[in-house]
């Protein structure tokens, strides 16, 4: 079995990104990059699959230097093959472009299973994996909290607002991972050190800039005013419960 895991570096979530001088871009150059947390679940799921069913697992990451960091993080967890997919120089990629580039490479690799985090926590795009499934003609399940493979069929618990859909499908398929699916392993230091030296294959997406041109324009980037307007309702103050009801209605099952 061949498994592909899609990984991405995201800026350290602990730090607030800054807005560039033109006001339409986020500056991330000064930030540390870490492996997207949802991708850690995907890597762990792939490693567990490998352990139980035996598989060749390849991690792929699209991008420049930071993509290599994501691959090294995946190596540290135990992945053995890493592919950096290089986008055309200077291309500004949206989820659409990313999926097109990755599809180009994955078509040749033809994995039986593609795993990815349910979204990257920087752009919160939440679409690349599903798009890939469409480009490649694979089935897909999103935000999966339980995954099992038996007799060549996948059983995936897909989380949604009212519970879980237990889906069963044949391979090939694309699965995105949600927290709770597993507990990603903590890499050992010898692995971390080895990861620094492991070879990364490089592939070009081989698509033209025009094909990848974003279909939208960023007008403005802003930092929201603190959403946390604290409200404290003292005892017997009117309105507290009513206020809360509104909130609960909105936050649950919407």
């Amino acid at each position: 079995m061949k498994i592909a895991v899609l990984v991405k570096s995201v800026p350290d979530t602990a730090v607030i990104p800054e807005i560039g001088p033109n006001g339409v871009a986020v500056v991330t150059g000064h930030l540390d990059f870490v492996l997207n947390p949802f991708d850690e679940y995907a890597v762990e799921a792939a490693l567990q699959m490998k352990q139980t069913h035996g598989a060749e697992v390849t991690a792929l990451s699209l991008g420049g230097e930071e993509a290599r960091q994501a691959l090294r993080a995946a190596f540290a967890m135990g992945i053995e093959i890493g592919v950096q997919v290089r986008p055309p120089r200077g291309a500004e990629l949206t989820g659409r472009g990313i999926a097109l580039c990755l599809a180009q490479v994955l078509r040749n690799l033809a994995p039986d299973l593609i795993l990815a985090g349910k979204q990257a926590v920087d752009g919160d795009g939440a679409q690349v994996a599903e798009r890939l499934a469409e480009h490649l003609g694979y089935l897909h399940a999103s935000a999966v909290t339980r995954l099992a493979l038996e007799n060549g069929r996948l059983t995936a618990h897909q989380a949604f607002e009212e519970g879980q859909l237990v889906l069963e499908m044949p391979l090939p398929a694309v699965i995105t991972t949600e927290k709770g699916i597993n507990e990603p392993r903590y890499p050992t230091l010898p692995r971390i050190l080895k990861a620094r030296r492991m070879e990364i294959q490089e592939l070009d997406a081989g698509l033209s800039d025009a094909r990848l041109e974003p279909g939208w324009r960023v007008e403005r980037i802003s930092i929201p005013r603190p959403e946390r307007h604290r409200r404290l309702f003292s005892e017997h103050e009117a309105g507290g419960v009513e206020h809360l009801i509104g909130l609960l209605q909105q936050k649950s099952r919407s």
């Binding site: 230091l189 010898p190 050190l193 080895k194 620094r196 030296r197």
Partner: peptide
Amino acid sequence: DFSDEETAAF
């Protein structure tokens, strides 16, 4: 010392 990347055990 972490400088030797070949170290197999710490």
